[in-house]
């Protein structure tokens, strides 16, 4: 059964309402990302300002063997939520062998750094820690956490601003960026549905228009017949 233009108008309105909700969330997350990134840049600038002469926290210190500790996970959304994909960020731990080596060598440092990082993360944002715990996955034991900690590239005693920058970066990477990517995919899905519905509506409108024309023509013919008949009386 073909949908009427009124049905299609309602469908389009519902889709646009959903689209605007997604857009609102996208805009709010964009603002949050801007805020976090400003914080990261300020903290990096502070760390560089207070660093020893000639030291810059940048690419010269990157570890060429770095392994990603936070990785993207893409899943399909539930059919009720549309046909788009959902991006998530998952935390991975080091391989068992590496982990053991690292644990033996630097167990003490790990614990110390863990405590320090927790303090700085709490100072920067209380949400960060909640996110680790509330991600739905069991949080890894503390000893594993720093096996791939990029802070170590910059020495054992990393300055507080650098830790703050890290806490903000973690929040951006875990909470904002995957959600922005998911929203972009969800919005693209709604855009597609709106375009399809608009196409259908325009077809339905054409059909309606033709029907109306036919009816008018039929009506005119009917009247014309009467007019012809009447003078004969």
């Amino acid at each position: 059964m073909a949908e009427t233009t009124v049905d299609l108008d309602t469908t389009i309105d519902t889709l646009l309402e959903r689209y605007l909700t997604l857009l609102d969330e996208y805009t709010r997350l964009r603002a949050r990302l801007n805020g976090l990134q400003s914080g990261i840049y300020q903290n990096l600038a502070r760390a560089n300002f207070s660093a020893q002469r000639g030291v810059r926290y940048g690419q010269d210190h990157y570890d060429d063997r770095m392994q990603a500790a936070r990785r993207v996970q893409i899943t399909q959304s539930s059919p009720s939520a549309g046909h788009h994909v959902i991006f998530d960020m998952i935390k991975v731990t080091a391989d068992e062998s590496e982990e053991n080596d690292d644990k033996n060598n630097t167990k003490k440092e790990d614990q110390q750094e863990e405590q320090d990082e927790k303090k700085s993360a709490a100072a920067a944002t209380t949400k960060d820690d909640n996110n680790h715990d509330g991600s739905g996955k069991p949080s890894p034991p503390p000893k594993k956490r720093n096996n791939h900690d990029p802070l170590r590239w910059f020495g054992l005693l990393s300055p507080q601003p650098l830790r703050l920058a890290q806490a903000q970066a973690v929040q951006a990477v875990e909470e904002i960026i995957p959600r922005l990517a998911s929203l972009s995919a969800a919005m693209a899905d709604v855009e597609l549905q709106v375009r399809r519905a608009r196409k259908k509506r325009s077809k339905a409108e054409k059909v309606d228009h033709q029907k109306k024309l036919q009816q008018q023509e039929g009506h005119l013919h009917g009247n014309g017949g009467q007019e012809e008949v009447l003078p004969a009386h």
Binding site: G58, K91, Q166
Partner: peptide, 15 residues
């Protein structure tokens, strides 16, 4: 450099 350093601090860097 600062953008990349910030994001790498979050542990996304991979070689």
């Amino acid at each position: 450099e600062d953008s990349v350093t910030g994001l790498l601090l979050a542990g996304i860097g991979h070689v």
